[in-house]
Design a protein around this nucleic acid. Structure first.
Length: 386
DNA sequence: CGTCCACGTCTAC
DNA sequence: TAGACCTGGACGG
């Protein structure tokens, strides 16, 4: 799940668990990995990491700086499926495109694993220059970068789309944008600039000199604004330690953490880039939802898109989310073996189907909702409906 | 078996 | 604003 929390957790994993390990030899690369060979070889080196938004930088350092090669930096992007794992060198996982071997007796390998190969790495210490400050580790700079550039045409777009613009929101991805907007019940297609300008006003009010410091702090904590949530929501994911590379799958824990994204009963639409935005329709909201104009068929909403009724439906049934469903992937995997051999295999012109057709709304019969609360998405089977 | 969908960028009509 | 780039899991017939 590579959005900034996963990158930061990967960094923490590398500095923690792998920080004490001694690595040796060269860096192995699969022929299909989306990145260059790594020209580094050393008989005793360590690896450290630092994350910035959706990038992760590794530094390979000789234990003896005098004897070994100079440090080598690498900057990774995880694409849709990248991750780091530490495993016995004799049992590499599939799609381990870059491997750092330890000097241990039965060696282990720190692997960059990436089934879809949308991820990549580059040599050197440079962050991608167009990406803005990290929402997690450079919060003040991030905030200023947004508020000082509101005249940028980028902010003409709906807030849900701007949140994916890495020039301003480095680290935010599809699940975070949904979770962040949901916390404030912001309609996803509200114009970004309007939202953010309003936020400036709020900011002034929170700084009212007639307030005591305590009051200011309290105000701030109880009324976090959108930009603050871009910082605190990802941090929640980190402190909840979902995605711990140690125990591979607490994907269940992650699903359980989600309040909006993939959650049955929430609505979803395609944005202008064909990405699915999840949100809750606030009762009585103006409903300026759909990218084009009319909200169209929305199971939840339908009927009276006008209804200016001020009552804010208190989230149909707050927290029945206790997945309690543990997939337990203990199943044995068949030793598939070398996908790497599929390198040149390219010409598979898969029939392209248009994915962007209809506004893909979750067909959730109002009556059935709240029933299958288990594994989001798959409301399948089970659901005795009523 | 086939279709649809996925935590993200990129570039090219 | 579409594809392209990929693999794999869920689901439907």
């Amino acid at each position: 799940m590579p959005e900034c929390p996963e990158l930061h957790l990967a960094g923490r994993f590398i500095n923690g668990t792998c920080g004490a390990l001694v690595f040796a030899g060269g860096v192995e690369r699969s022929p299909v990995g989306r990145g260059p060979e790594v020209p580094f070889r050393c008989e005793a080196y360590s690896i450290s990491a630092i994350a910035r938004g959706k990038e992760l930088r590794l530094t390979l350092s000789a234990l003896d700086p005098a004897a070994g090669p100079p440090p080598q930096d690498l900057v990774f992007r995880f694409g849709m499926s990248g991750s780091f794992r530490l495993c016995p060198a004799a049992e590499l996982p599939r799609h381990a495109h870059l491997r750092f071997l330890t000097r241990e007796s039965p060696p282990r390998a720190l692997c960059f694993v990436d089934p879809r190969r949308f991820g990549s790495w580059r040599l050197g210490d440079a962050w991608q220059p167009e990406r803005g400050p990290c929402v997690i580790s450079e919060y003040q700079a991030f905030r200023e970068n947004v508020l000082k550039n509101l005249d940028d045409r980028a902010f003409d777009k709906p807030i849900c789309e701007v949140l994916l613009n890495q020039k301003y929101f480095n680290g935010i991805g599809n699940y975070l944008r949904a979770e962040i907007l949901y916390r404030l019940k912001i309609p996803p297609f509200e114009k970004a600039r309007t939202m953010l300008e309003a936020l400036k006003e709020q900011e002034m009010r929170k700084k009212d000199p007639s307030l005591t410091l305590r009051k200011k702090v309290k105000l701030r904590q109880e009324n976090p604004d959108l930009l603050e949530l871009c910082h605190t929501v990802p941090k929640e994911v980190i402190s909840a330690e979902l995605f711990d590379p140690e125990h591979s799958d607490n994907y269940a824990a992650f699903k359980n953490w989600l309040q909006c994204y993939l959650v049955p009963g929430m609505s979803s639409l395609r944005d202008h880039n064909g990405r699915t935005i999840w949100f809750q329709v606030g009762a009585g909201e103006p409903l300026k939802l759909s990218p084009k104009g009319a909200p169209r068929k929305n199971p939840q909403v339908k009927a009276d898109p006008e209804a200016p009724s001020p009552k804010v439906t208190p989230r149909a049934s707050k927290q029945h989310r206790k997945a309690a469903v543990k997939p337990l992937k203990s199943q044995v995997k068949e030793e598939e073996k070398e996908e790497e051999a599929d390198g040149p295999k390219k010409g598979h012109a898969r029939g392209r189907r248009k994915v962007t057709a209809a506004p893909a709304l979750p067909e959730v019969p109002l009556g059935v909702r709240r029933s299958s609360r288990t594994s989001a998405r798959r409301g399948k089977g089970a659901a005795p409906a009523v």
